[in-house]
C-alpha cells in the first residue's frame, strides 16, 4: 500500500489539539475585525469623505481633530479616529470645541453626519447636531446602507481613503513615525490608489497598521460599546434580507 500523504504535518500536536504554525510561532493572537469593529468606528470619516471628497474631507477631519486635541491636555495625544473615542467628551464640550473653532468646517462636518445622527441616535458624535430637527428619511437610510455595503470591501477606494485618513490622524497626533525607506513614508501618494504600484503598497501598509492600532496596542480602538450598538441598531431600523431578494 502506498504511503499516506500526511495531513496538517506543519501543525504541532499538543494533547488532542493541532496548533496552527502561525499560532505556534507567535502565540495566541487577538482578533480584530474590519467589519465588526472598524467600520462602525470609522464610518463618520467615510461619510465626510463621501460628501465632501477625499481632499476636503481630510481637511475637515484634520481641523476638527486638531481642535479636539487642543481642547485639553488629556486629549492632546489621543488619535481621534474611532467614533467611540468621542464618548469620553461630554456633548456640551464637543459642541463648544466646534463652534469656537477659528477654522470654518462646522457646517460641512454636520452636513455629512446628519444621516448618521438621524438613524443612529447613540452615535458618539451626535452632540454636534443637538437641537436640530433630524429627518430620518428612507433616502438617508438607503444612503447609509449603500455606504456601509461599499465599505465591506476593505480594499475599495472609499474604504482605503477612510483608513488612510485614520492613519493620517495617527501621524498628525505625532503617535506614528515611520522609517524613511518604508512605503508608508510616502503616505501622500495614497491619493493615486489604486492606479500605481506604490499606492497599492501604501494601502497594504495602511491596512496592516490599522490592524495593529485596533489590536493589541489599542491606541486607536475605543474599547467602547459603539460598534456593537451600531450593528444592533441596524437590526432595529431595517429588516433582514435574503440574497434572492425576499
Amino acid at each position: 500500500m502506498a504511503a499516506r500523504t500526511p495531513v496538517l504535518a506543519d501543525h504541532r500536536k499538543v494533547g488532542s489539539r493541532l496548533i496552527a504554525p502561525f499560532n505556534d510561532m507567535f502565540g495566541p493572537t487577538r482578533d480584530v475585525s474590519w467589519i465588526n469593529t472598524m467600520i462602525p468606528e470609522l464610518l463618520w470619516i467615510a461619510l465626510i469623505q463621501d460628501v465632501h471628497g477625499s481632499r476636503r474631507g481630510v481637511e475637515i477631519i484634520t481641523a476638527f481633530t486638531r481642535d479636539v486635541r487642543a481642547s485639553s491636555a488629556d486629549r492632546s495625544t489621543e488619535i481621534w479616529a474611532a467614533a467611540g473615542k468621542f464618548t469620553a467628551i461630554p456633548g456640551e464640550a464637543l459642541r463648544a470645541i466646534v463652534t469656537g473653532s477659528p477654522e470654518n468646517y462646522a457646517d460641512e462636518l454636520r452636513d455629512a453626519l446628519r444621516p448618521l445622527a438621524a438613524w443612529y441616535p447613540s452615535h458618539p458624535l451626535n452632540a454636534l447636531l443637538a437641537g436640530e430637527t433630524l429627518d430620518a428619511s428612507a433616502d438617508e437610510l438607503t444612503y447609509l446602507k449603500r455606504t456601509v455595503a461599499t465599505l465591506f470591501d476593505r480594499s475599495c477606494k472609499a474604504a482605503i481613503m477612510t483608513q488612510a485618513t485614520a492613519v493620517w490622524l495617527a501621524f498628525d497626533a505625532d503617535r506614528l513615525k515611520v522609517a524613511p525607506d518604508l512605503s508608508l513614508a510616502q503616505f501622500p501618494r495614497i491619493e493615486e490608489y489604486p492606479e500605481t504600484e506604490l499606492s497599492l503598497r501604501i494601502a497594504a501598509s495602511i491596512r496592516a497598521s490599522l490592524n495593529q492600532f485596533f489590536g493589541d496596542t489599542a491606541i486607536m480602538a475605543s474599547e467602547s460599546d459603539w460598534p456593537a450598538a451600531f450593528w444592533n441598531r441596524g437590526l432595529e431600523i431595517a429588516p433582514c434580507e435574503d440574497y434572492d431578494g425576499r
Partner: peptide, 8 residues
C-alpha cells in the same frame, strides 16, 4: 442575511 446594516 444580505442587509449590509446587519453585518451579514
Amino acid at each position: 442575511c444580505s442587509n449590509p446594516l446587519h453585518r451579514h
